[in-house]
Design a protein around this nucleic acid. Structure first.
Lengths: 323, 323
DNA sequence: ATGAAAGCGCTAACAA
DNA sequence: TTGTTAGCGCTTTCAT
């Protein structure tokens, strides 16, 4: 800017006004604005984003803390959020915490030290305490998939309960009566809502759960739990897995059991499976609009970062993919 | 820093020396260093990364341009790269270009405007021309999966040819003689090497390709091409898909054909499939160490960014997962 | 072993 | 319609 100003015998200020598009506001003459722009082009001027960020105290960057990029849910969220960030001129740092405490702390540090302007995160991925601290300090963040108490920042998530209801209704419609639930720990809000939805829907049909297994949400744990369920007499005629990894475990257990699907029992899982049509066993899924979650979250974050009000909760409808 | 200095009646310089860990070099007394650190803690000092980046002309951040976060290859790379970036104190911006030209341009602009210090990218994801420009301007980047001519910056990739050889050897060992190749356009170096490896390996066994289909690397295109192949007489007794999406298409075609695997034919695909054990048809895969690719790429990028020399090519061995 | 001072590139309040 | 000036928080050179 200085060089341009010198060459044009203008002040650096004027150049700045033009180059930042504020010439209207400062009533710079069209002719001058033109000269500045031309010179800038000729001289190969490139704005120094670092200087600008420093001066404005804003890096136009945000972070997305993800607990497992291996999970298509989070990949989808990342895609959506990144897309929106790009549209808004923000840089999005994607941080994979992999549920390692040390890495969670670093995400928060990132926000504080690198002066990232905002954060998209799901509680658990970053400990509640840290989030409450951030909240108190006024750092804007948007929650995904689940939320914590005592924070009026928004949460964007699928209507978990509704998803479970879709699953139950589907199974009951197909004549199943003995449904078993396999879900993660209900301390995690996600699973609490999914379980609650499951229970409520069953009640609506005048049924009771054949079983409710609360286990760590991994394929191995689900496989073991499902195997146990399948040995029970009477055997449940439907298994409902409350997330992708649980459903994969269920599928493995059923496959090993040699039972036939859908003759002997039916399987429904939360989260769609990309290769579902190629699997040996048919599985109905409750699909989430993951990219939309990411997009919405980022848009709300922008609102927050600009001091605009944002709703406390955005619920997206799930979709049943029957198979 | 100023506040700390005032409180301690020291100069800001001294405080800076201590807080940036350079007190050894500047021979600050241990006592002073201690006082400074204590005060910093008490006063809740947090370094302002924005100011530092501005002053040092580097943001300690890098970008990873990915063409499709939906592809586990890229997710794996992202996980690996992010992990390493974190270890090195860098922030990694993951950019999903989704093969949209406009978005590719933005990635390059990001680098130029210096919000990031370096780039990890695969050619095609960002057009060759843009990369050559960057190279000429001296901006550091590391290539992934494939590389362009005229650039001595490193490329980290799986040994594609070796992967194809693993596939061919496996099939021949199992008695297959009539192998068909389905791959993406050989203008993309990745596919060129995979095809070449396929051809060479066959020749080594005294065989010739039953067929070579060069198609867009999507499930739909592969499904159509594979269906055509399966109608041929004589029918190939093995199909080799040169990437994940091609292999998924092949699996669909074979499934619809009603042919039995492995009795009638066998399938091998480049890139592992997470749910392979649950699929209706067994599929052998050539697995890449995707996270390692990401990690290595980032480490090389750090070397480049610090002006250290880096090798032109890093080849990682693939691994056959027979099924 | 510590400090003074300059400056990184930009923005904005204010003056003219 | 344009310019003057100060300053953002930090690092670094040079002095002391």
């Amino acid at each position: 800017m200085k060089d341009i100003a010198e060459r044009l015998r203008l002040s650096q200020t004027t150049v700045s006004h033009v180059l930042t598009g504020k010439h209207e506001h400062y009533r710079i003459s069209a002719a001058t604005a033109d000269r500045v722009r031309r010179a800038a082009r000729e001289m190969g001027y490139r704005a120094n984003a670092l200087a600008r960020a420093f001066r404005e105290r804003r890096a136009y960057s945000a972070a997305l803390a993800v607990e497992d990029l291996t999970n298509p849910f989070w990949t989808g969220v990342a895609i959506g959020a990144e897309r929106e960030a790009d549209r808004e001129g923000y840089t999005l740092a994607v941080c994979n915490t992999a549920r390692v405490e040390e890495r969670e702390r670093r995400v928060v540090a990132l926000l504080r030290e690198r002066r990232v302007d905002g954060l998209i995160v799901s509680p658990i991925t970053v400990a509640d305490r840290a989030l409450l601290d951030l909240h108190r300090e006024g750092y804007p963040f948007v929650q995904i998939d689940r939320s914590i108490r005592g924070v009026e920042y928004p949460c964007v998530r699928t209507d978990h309960a509704r998803g479970s209801a879709l699953a139950v209704d589907h199974l009951v419609r197909r004549g199943r009566r003995s449904l078993a639930y396999l879900g993660g720990p209900p301390e995690i809000q996600t699973y609490a809502y999914r379980l609650e939805g499951f229970r409520k829907a069953l009640r609506r049909h005048g049924l009771r759960p054949a079983s409710v297994c609360l286990i760590p949400p991994t394929p191995a744990d689900a496989e073991a739990a499902a195997a146990r369920l399948l040995r029970r007499r009477p055997r449940p005629d439907a298994l409902y897995g409350a997330n992708l990894f649980l459903t994969l475990g269920i599928l493995r257990a059923v496959r090993r059991s040699g039972l036939r699907v859908p003759e002997d029992l039916e399987i429904v899982g939360f989260d769609d499976i990309a290769t579902a049509d190629l699997l040996a066993l048919p599985v109905t899924t409750v699909a989430q609009d993951v990219e939309e979650i990411g997009r919405r979250a980022f848009r709300l974050l922008v609102d927050l970062m600009n001091g605009r009000p944002a709703p406390r909760e955005v619920l997206l409808p799930p979709r049943l993919i029957a198979r």
